[in-house]
Amino acid sequence: MQKYFDVSYLWGTIPQLIPFLKVTFMVAGLSVLFGTILGFILALMKLGTSKIAKKTANSYTTIIRCTPSIVLLFLVYYGLPAIVGNFGTDLNTLHTAVFVVITFSLQFGALMSEVMRTAYEAIDRGQFEAAVSVGLSPAQAFRRIVLPQAFVVALPNFGNSFLELMKEGSLAYTIGLVDIMGKASLIISNNYNSHSLEIYLGLSLIYWILSILIEQFFSRLEKIFSKGKQVIKTT
């Protein structure tokens, strides 16, 4: 090995990795979709009147939040086929991505339930009371007055959670998913583990730029939806 560190490797691998962003995005997008639906249901359970539902939703959230992503991945990847196998179905032919999406949907759902719950609780009850006082039904009051305001409160947290999802999603390579992380691992093992530093740096560059773009996007969204509110500057 002549050079220990060869910058050209860095620039060389980036074009090889970019096509696999598709997989990263697709998996993230589906996880967000299912996770948000799950999170919504869990939030309803947490805010509702049924004690059992509340306890169940809170337990679920705590358990998921205390579980490292790779552990969850492995549990789903090995555990789900085993459980379902007892009923006769063979899940071993399913594409890895399915297990990845299931895992991160479960995780994102837990995150989202907290985001939605705190956003809802942040809206003053007086808004709802005023709405029903002018003759709106509770459902209308919620939909037209409380929800839009809760949405704005939830937006920054949603953005953060989305960013977290993208980063945790990188662990999917451990069960064989070929997204940008997976491809990077393949490249490295193909090169007999030489020049792995450059490749990892290239990978980190892609993630970094991606995260900055996502942050900007959500900042922009917040500005658009906050019309009519005074925003407190913290920077």
Binding site: D124, G126, Q127, E129, A130, A131, V132, S133, V134, G135, I145, P148, Q149, V152, G228, K229
Partner: peptide
């Protein structure tokens, strides 16, 4: 509620309207 109207101590105007 159709026959009454309420004026609140802290106004409770709809912030998003």
């Amino acid at each position: 509620r159709q026959k009454t109207a309420f004026v609140f101590q802290n106004y409770n105007l709809f912030n998003n309207k």
